[in-house]
Amino acid sequence: MEVNEVFEKVKTLFEEELGIDSEKINMDAKLEEDLEIDSLGIVEVVMAFEDEFEIEIDDEELTDVGTVGQAVNLLHSKL
């Protein structure tokens, strides 16, 4: 799967599952500041990623994930 395909899937997931306004979702968007995803929301995001992409994400892998782009790249690397 290409990076842009992963991004589109992430965008749809954020929009439909979490109710985030699609206009805010781009590769540079910060998860906490721009998309208002708090610490509980991050857990939801990870669960949604795991279900959508059929992968497992460890907490340690999230340390450097602060933007949509970083999340997309992490997912891409695991597929």
Binding site: L18, G19, I20, D21, E36, L40
Partner: peptide, 8 residues
């Protein structure tokens, strides 16, 4: 309240 808030 918007879906993002409502679902919490």
């Amino acid at each position: 309240m918007g879906k993002q808030n409502a679902r919490k």
